[in-house]
């Protein structure tokens, strides 16, 4: 336990000093973007990983968070709510939309829920695009208010946002951990494993699922605010189905239900997507292979990762023991079963 704490402390320290060591702001920018996606993944993990509800339109809440910052903190309507206050407001707005969508739909069977959320994910960005008198349509809203801290404006460097995100992720991890171990967290787990049984145990399944939906949405509302402020721009093409799938894939890669797994998964995919693929092509060109073009194979690589992970390690790189056991239930892995048993006893004790 102490060793683990030491490792965490070291990692935290390394992340804090990183921008001082690497003066290449594009790297810090990359980390900040990846941070926003980690926040998204932590939120989706509550819905998909903890409660086992499949949400295919998660990007809609990201859009709602981003657009609420853009509308409430810019010249658009002349409203200027401070950034720090928006960090409180936007999650609430997103959570309200989560409730709005969830209340009528959460009693649906799992796959139907997936489709409803998919539909919602299509409707929201398209509506932001179409209501051009309020949102500037395809141009999006730019020149958002810049955050400032103790009178110092953030400016255009990625570094201040990097620290904000670092802080939010730390808070997010704490919140997710506490939720997971709470009564609510156990109720989620029960619903995930057997909804019918959970209901018979006296769990109010609808309310419990709604809580997961709203809490998950609030994380992406938070991510939306920081992302919008950092980019100084919100445009409707940033929130499509592909973003929902990207975040879902991050969970799958890292390990659904495991907070650290989700973080690793989203970092790895962000790294591949935003750094490795764009940069490696350029390196190949610079090395004289002018006809090599990795970006042409981007979707191939991406698809292969998803398929092979699911086939050979569906529990993700860093699995949650519970979820791993669920994935391998059919295979009846004795070692895992024993592990689960001992963990269960540990909890009971």
């Amino acid at each position: 336990m102490t060793r683990r704490h030491a490792a965490l402390g070291f990692l935290g320290l390394a992340l804090v000093v990183y921008p001082f060591v690497d003066r290449n702001n594009s790297h810090v920018d990359f980390l900040a973007n990846a941070g926003a996606f980690i926040l998204l993944a932590l939120g989706l993990n509550i819905v998909v990983g903890f409660a086992g509800l499949l949400d295919l339109g998660y990007a809609a809440f990201f859009a709602i968070g981003s657009y609420s910052y853009a509308m409430l903190a810019s010249q658009q309507f002349g409203i200027h709510v401070p950034f720090w206050l928006m960090l409180l407001i936007a999650p609430v707005v997103a959570a309200l939309f989560g409730l709005l969508l969830g209340a009528p739909t959460l009693r649906l069977r799992g796959d139907y829920l997936a489709i409803v959320t998919l539909g919602f994910g299509e409707i929201v960005p398209q509506t932001f695009l179409n209501l051009s008198q309020y949102t500037n349509g395809p141009n999006g809203i730019s020149s958002l208010d810049q955050p400032s801290l103790f009178g110092h404006a953030f400016g255009f460097s990625a570094t201040p946002y990097y620290y904000v995100l670092l802080g939010l992720i730390a808070l997010g991890i704490l919140a997710a951990r506490n939720l997971q171990n709470s009564r609510l967290g156990r109720a989620w787990m029960a619903i995930r494993e057997d909804e019918l049984a959970a209901r018979h145990m006296g769990i109010n399944t609808t309310a419990t699922k709604l809580a997961a939906f709203a809490l998950g949405a609030s994380f992406s509302g938070l991510a939306g605010v920081v992302y919008a402020a950092k980019l100084d721009l919100v445009s409707p093409d940033e929130f499509g189905f592909n973003v929902s799938v990207l975040v879902l894939s991050m969970l799958v890669l890292g390990g659904m239900g495991n907070i650290w797994g989700v973080i690793v998964g989203s970092f790895v995919l962000s790294f591949i997507n935003s750094f490795l693929l764009p940069q490696s092509t350029s390196l190949a060109h610079a090395a004289g292979f002018v006809n090599v073009d990795f970006t042409n194979y981007r979707f191939m690589l991406y698809g292969v990762i998803l398929v092979t992970m699911m086939l050979f390690r569906p529990e993700g790189l860093i699995p949650s023991r519970q979820r791993a056991a669920e994935f391998h239930e059919a295979i009846l892995d004795p070692a895992l079963a024993a592990q689960e048993q001992s963990e269960y006893e540990g909890v009971a004790r």
Binding site: D29, S235, D237, H285, T295, F299
Partner: peptide, 25 residues
């Protein structure tokens, strides 16, 4: 020095900004 600003198949302002910072750096 060419970089792709599409993430998941659609042009992405955040990726564009990151690529531009890579050029600047």
């Amino acid at each position: 020095y060419d970089l792709d600003d599409a993430v998941q198949g659609v042009h992405d302002p955040a990726q564009g900004a990151q690529n531009t910072r890579a050029f600047v750096s």
